[in-house]
Nucleic acid binder design. Sequence first.
DNA 1: GTAACCCGTAAACCTCAGTTGATGGCCTTG
DNA 2: CAAGGCCATCAACTGAGGTTTACGGGTTAC
Lengths: 146, 146
Amino acid sequence: MPGHERDAFSIAEKLDRLFQQIRPSGQAEFSSMAVAEAIRAQQGISISHTYIWQLRTGRRTNPTVQHLTALALFFGVPVAYFLDDAEARKINDQLELLRTLRDAQVTEIALRAADVSASSREAIGEIVRKVWELENPAERRRQQDD
Amino acid sequence: MPGHERDAFSIAEKLDRLFQQIRPSGQAEFSSMAVAEAIRAQQGISISHTYIWQLRTGRRTNPTVQHLTALALFFGVPVAYFLDDAEARKINDQLELLRTLRDAQVTEIALRAADVSASSREAIGEIVRKVWELENPAERRRQQDD
DNA sequence: GTAACCCGTAAACCTCAGTTGATGGCCTTG
DNA sequence: CAAGGCCATCAACTGAGGTTTACGGGTTAC
C-alpha cells in the first residue's frame, strides 16, 4: 500500500451520516428496507435492503456506480459526495489553477506565447522570470512548495 | 424508467475522450496497457489492461468505485467527471485549454506572469504581442477567428 | 528473415459485488 | 397469550465485475 492516503471518510461513514440527517418526516431514520424499496420503486434499480445495510456498516466497501448513484439520488446529494474527498480535491486544484490564470487575465499572454517559436518562448520565459524575481523578495520566494 | 433523465454520455464515451485529450508527451495516446500499469504502480490498485479497454469500448459499463476512482485519479479529473454530465462538459473545455498550453510548454510562463503586478503583466503582454506579430506575417493574422 | 516487443481484441475463467433466505428481537393488535 | 408485521443481522448462494491467457497485427532490432 503505497503513499497515497485514502479517503478520510469512508463510504460507510458518509452513508451513515445521510441516514442520520435525512429523515422521512423528521422522526426516526429511514430503514434499510424502506430505502431499498424506494429506490426500486422510484428508479427501477434493483437493490436489496441487506446490501444497503452492508454498505452502511462497512461490510461491503466497493459498490458499483449504478448502486452508488442510486443511493445518492435517493438522498438527494451529488454522487461526488461519496467520492470526492482529499484526493479528488487535490486534483481539483489543477483545474482551479486554470481559473486562477484566467482570473489574472494571463491566458491571452499564454495563448499568444504558445503560438510562438521555441526560442522566442524561451526568451519570453526569461523576461518573465526576471520580472517575477524583481517583484518577489527572496523571503517570500521560500514558501513556494506544494 | 421514470422521469429522471440518465446521463447523455456514457462512461465509455467520457473515458475515450480522456484518452484522446490527455496524452503522455503530446504525441500518441496512452495505451490501455500503459494506463493499467501506471495505475498499479502509482496507486497500488489492481486493474487489467483488458478491463480498461472493455470500459473504454462500452463492453463493460458498471465499474466499482475503486476502479473508476483510480481512472479518474490517473487522468487528473474528479470522479464526478464520469458521473455528472454538467461537470463533465465544464472540465472538457478546461482540459482542452490546459493541453494546448502544456503542449507548448508555456505553463511556467503563465504561472509566473499570474503572480506578477498588473503593470508588469501589461508590459509582458506587450512584449509577447510584439514577438507574436513579428513571427506571424500580416496575411496570416487576418484569419484569427476560432 | 526472425526474434522480441507492444498493442488491441477475444473468450474462458475466477473472484467478489450483490441477492436470497432464514433467524430472532421489538413492536403492535386481537 | 398468540399472531403478524417491520426490522437488523447473519450465512449461503448466484451472477456480474474483473482477470488470465492467448492470438494476430504492427513495429523495431539484430
